[in-house]
């Protein structure tokens, strides 16, 4: 299965390696033409204002929205989660705005407040995942179409709306590949969440 990693800025190579280890064929996406034929796209960690501005040029925001409407799944980590949110507290920065949720940037404070912790993700069986939070946002609230998958310290840290997945931490910085495997399962499902590959015909 072919998936992409948005390659404008951020920890791109960590996601590429994690997805490859989870069994995907990975392409790097810098321009809209690189989205062709992708079942999923990861928006990596990085600086959300930088990535958003660079997406706004070369027409990547409408191109990604179009690909999502045609069935592409998206997984945003940290900066990627911010760019997926419809509402970013106190900011008018460029974004995809595809998920019905409100995020707050740098919600834990500055770098000295960045931390690692263990987080149980409801749709990922087994032990908790090691979650690395770096100047992380929180998901303040979600709409009725969004399912909360994980909380930490009373705050939402992972949520899903159909095949759009947002996490405020960095699974790509650890050796545990379960979160990326979970995302690849979402990529393989059809829009109604039926079995892997069931919706392949409808995508075109």
């Amino acid at each position: 299965m072919k998936v992409g990693v948005l390659d404008l800025q951020g920890d791109v190579i960590e996601h590429v390696r994690a997805l490859e280890a989870a069994g995907a064929e990975v392409v790097r996406v810098k321009r809209p033409r690189h989205l062709e034929g992708l079942r999923g796209l990861v928006i990596p960690g990085g600086e959300s204002t930088t990535i958003g501005k660079l997406m706004a040029e070369y027409e990547l925001i409408p191109a990604v929205r179009q690909a999502v409407s045609e069935g592409m799944a998206v997984f945003g980590t940290c900066a990627g989660a911010i760019l997926l949110a419809a509402d970013i507290a106190g900011s008018d920065q460029p974004r995809l705005g595809l998920m019905d949720m409100r995020v707050q940037r740098n919600a834990y404070g500055r770098q000295r407040e960045s931390f690692e912790a263990e987080v149980q993700v409801s749709e990922i069986p087994g032990p908790p995942v090691k979650a690395v939070f770096i100047r992380a946002p929180i998901i303040e609230r979600v709409g009725s179409s969004v399912k909360v998958l994980a909380e930490y310290g009373g705050q939402i840290v992972m949520a899903r709306q159909g095949r759009l997945l947002a996490g405020t931490f960095h699974p790509e910085l650890t050796a545990d590949r379960r979160v990326h495997q979970y995302f690849l399962q979402l990529c393989a499902e059809d829009a109604e969440g039926r079995g892997p590959g069931a919706g392949a015909d409808r995508l075109r």
Binding site: G10, Q111, S114, V132
Partner: peptide, 8 residues
């Protein structure tokens, strides 16, 4: 990790 996020 923060340095990784600054890459590119």
């Amino acid at each position: 990790g923060l340095a990784e996020m600054l890459k590119g």
